[in-house]
Design a protein around this nucleic acid. Structure first.
Length: 466
RNA sequence: GGCCUCGUGGCGGAGUGGUUACGCAGCGGAUUGCAAAUCCGUGUACUCCGGUUCAAAUCCGGACGAGGCCUCCA
């Protein structure tokens, strides 16, 4: 069955044909590391992890290259560094922020069952020309200047290299925007030094309390830092080439981020396409509202996993993952406690069905669902027709395998308690037997009684309730 | 103002011209010393109004409602 993917460029589902089936190449915009990742950030990471797994299944593990960057240069990072580490030299303060945040991000997404990408480049390593000759931001920018797609102008905060949006014929093709339709009202700040209101920054000069690199543009050295979009153009070209297969991210990145990436990359390289397929996941809301700090419904991945802030309990990463995948990736999700509770029950049932064995069903039904534009909700529905090893394999495909519960439960102690309890049953001492059951339950251990079908004897098993 | 999504049972959620997926919760029953778990059974739906059609939740038009983007937010 052919893989079909919805392409934002054409607003339709297309049969996916890789440029090189021996090396399928995908780029997904990663985090800007200035603060804990929130659960909205988790969605694209999970969605594209499923796609990565599917591609590996279809083309082979060694034939897929998945690049997800870490953006560790950004004005929000600078602000955070100055706030949190006022006494440290700037570069050190920044490194503290980015290291800490990136480490936390890695822990978070691992708990969500996401495979590490093939390559995870950091923006700061791609600002200036590199010894290995891989694509870098400064060279890309000079390239755009050479081809008259960019110009240098002086604004209120110093010199800037700006991209001239009118220099590209089909600027706005991805987001279906026409420059003249954009209202220069609410959010576009008219700046005199720009040729057009829509021109965006490629490089901006830094002041003394801002990080900067000495880059040369049109012969003049500008101590500065890159604009927002250029890092993805540089890093994707560095590892995936000028044109690659799939570029993914959240819906809100279509404009301006991805539009501008396309403009930079295509104009600098003289190509028609940056990526053949552009995929975007839908937005996430919390309890019916857009997640924002001011509304107070802002939840980080860390808080969900390790605190009782959301719904009065901690939630395992797999539950969060399933809660995301219950909805098709392009649909909006209203994240709620009820949804997590449902995911929790479903997952417990599925894991039990794996443990019980009784292998039946065909994983192909699940793969086929995913093959149709990553229809994960359909795929999850199909899980119900599987059991045993087939179900286990299907769960692995979705990244929902049971991981060893992080627990210090000593099995021998539990077994001893069960034996003790069975002895109380022999004396019909139900009160003591129940006391043992309740005590274990309070430790998160659920006892399950059943009867041996041959002898009618009571058989007690247990599991860790999460 | 421009552009883009989405309205399916109590909830989640596919489907997309004709057979009302699937799951969660609920309810009834079996089982149990009581529970939990499990098993069996079970109800309710396609925002509204037109149109096309033998047939529309599905296609077309309109209304209403919800949400998003429009320069650094995934």
């Amino acid at each position: 069955m052919d893989l079909r993917l919805h392409n934002t460029l054409t607003r339709s589902k297309e049969t996916f044909e890789p440029i090189d089936a021996k090396n399928v190449r995908m780029y997904v915009c990663g985090p800007t590391v200035y603060d804990y990742a929130h659960i909205g950030n988790a969605r694209p990471v999970i969605v594209f992890d499923v796609l990565y797994r599917l591609l590996r299944h279809k083309y082979g593990e060694k034939h897929v290259t998945y690049v997800r960057n870490i953006t560790d240069v950004d004005d929000k990072i600078n602000a955070r560094a100055l706030r949190d580490f006022p006494d440290l030299p700037l570069n050190e303060a920044i490194r503290n922020v980015t290291e800490k945040t990136a480490n936390q991000f890695h822990k978070d997404v691992e708990a969500l069952g996401c495979l590490p990408p093939t390559i995870e480049p950091r923006a700061t390593e791609f600002v200036l020309p590199r010894a290995d000759g891989k694509s870098d931001m400064a060279t890309l920018i000079q390239n755009l200047l050479d081809k008259n797609h960019a110009y240098i102008a002086t604004g209120g905060e110093g010199r800037e290299v700006l991209f001239d949006v009118t220099s590209m014929d089909n600027y706005g093709a991805l987001s279906n925007r026409k420059l003249e339709d954009q209202q220069a009202g609410a959010r576009i700040e008219a700046k005199d030094h720009k040729k057009n209101a829509g021109d965006f920054v490629l490089w901006k000069e830094s002041s003394a309390n801002e990080p900067g690199w000495d880059a040369t543009f049109n012969g003049e050295i500008i101590h500065g830092r890159p604009g927002w979009h250029i890092e993805c153009s540089a890093m994707s070209a560095a590892y995936l080439g000028e044109t690659f297969d799939i570029h993914g991210g959240g819906l809100d990145l279509i404009f301006p981020h991805h539009e501008n990436e396309i403009a930079q990359s295509c104009c600098a390289h003289g190509t028609q396409k940056m990526a053949n397929v552009w995929m975007h996941n839908g937005y996430l809301q919390v309890e019916g509202k857009k997640m924002s700090k001011s509304v107070g419904n802002f939840v980080t991945i860390y808080e969900l996993l390790h605190t009782e802030k959301f719904g009065g309990r901690k939630w395992p990463g797999e539950v969060l993952r399933l809660a995301m995948l219950m909805t098709h990736y392009r649909e909006p999700i209203d994240f709620s406690i009820k949804r997590l509770e449902e995911a929790d029950s479903v997952l417990a049932k599925l894991w039990r069905k794996v443990a019980e064995g009784d292998d039946s069903g065909d994983i192909k039904t699940v793969i086929n669902a995913l093959t149709d534009d990553l229809n994960s909700s359909e795929a999850i529905a199909k899980l119900n027709s599987l059991s045993g090893d087939a179900l286990g394999a299907a769960l692995e495909m979705l990244g929902l395998s049971r991981t060893a519960p992080a627990s210090d439960v000593d099995a021998s102690v539990v077994e001893a308690a069960i034996t003790e309890r069975l002895a109380f049953f022999a004396d019909k001492n139900f009160a003591e037997a129940d006391r043992i059951r309740d005590k274990l339950l309070s430790q998160g251990i659920q006892l399950k009684d059943s009867k041996d079908s041959e002898t009618g004897e009571r058989v007690t098993t247990w599991e860790i309730k999460r």
